[in-house]
Design a protein around this nucleic acid. Structure first.
Length: 199
DNA sequence: AGTATGATCACCT
DNA sequence: GGTGATCATACTA
């Protein structure tokens, strides 16, 4: 079933990021259903976390949606090339987010392959935060999308993941965050080939 | 109004 | 392993 708003509004973003491993992410963009199982996430925690875009309460055009109540999409462009998809969590005013970094594709494979410009199946179809957005057709126009609607949503398919199968490690690409760069807030499904290749 | 930079990826050696 | 693509945002002044 579709994850309800109450799920996203829980206060512990790190716990949510861990729990989202094994849930499903879908999009129906241009009428095309695509998606798969979430196998990699990262948590970003508002005020205290130097890696978080809303660090120190920073409120700008880009971060505005982060301050909304949980259950909306935060999409932004990185390196002028890739859209990264985040889920906003917690109550309004607490700007926490979970970045989706890896997806095991289950739905709409031909369409995802087409969107990625691949001529044959590839193991990196949705293995990486900038790749899975391309495959699902998610872009900057989806900034602020309600995740309980019928455009982009998450589902719980009652496939519990054993705690021992989830690996925690430091987040990627945030060397500028000082001591917070060491926090083990990246969660991956152990041994899954669809996690991102990044160290 | 100008400048620096990034929650990445593909391609090259 | 190293580097270039490419641009909105955020910051400086």
């Amino acid at each position: 079933m579709k994850l309800p708003l109450a799920y996203y509004r829980q206060p512990d973003v790190v716990a949510i990021a861990r729990d989202l491993v094994g849930k499903y992410l879908f999009s129906r963009i241009d009428g095309v259903l695509t998606g798969g199982r979430i196998v990699e996430t990262e948590a970003y925690a508002h005020i205290d976390d130097q890696a978080c875009h809303s660090h120190l309460g920073r409120f700008t055009k880009r971060t505005r949606v982060m301050y909304e109540a949980g259950g909306v999409a935060y999409v932004y462009l990185i390196y002028g090339r890739y859209a990264l998809f985040n889920i906003i969590t917690n109550v309004a005013g607490k700007a926490d987010a979970v970045l989706i970094r890896g997806l095991e594709p289950t739905e709409g494979l031909p369409e995802m392959q087409l969107r990625r410009g691949l001529s044959q199946p590839a193991r990196n179809l949705t293995a990486g935060p900038g790749l899975l957005t391309q495959a699902l057709g998610i872009g900057v126009p989806h900034y602020g999308t309600d995740l309980t609607g019928n455009l982009i949503w998450l589902e719980d398919r009652q496939e519990p993941v054993a705690a021992a199968d989830i690996v925690a490690s430091p987040r990627v690409g945030i060397d500028y965050a000082g001591a917070d760069a060491a926090l083990p807030w990246r969660f991956r499904l152990k041994g899954n080939p669809w996690t991102s290749p990044a160290k």
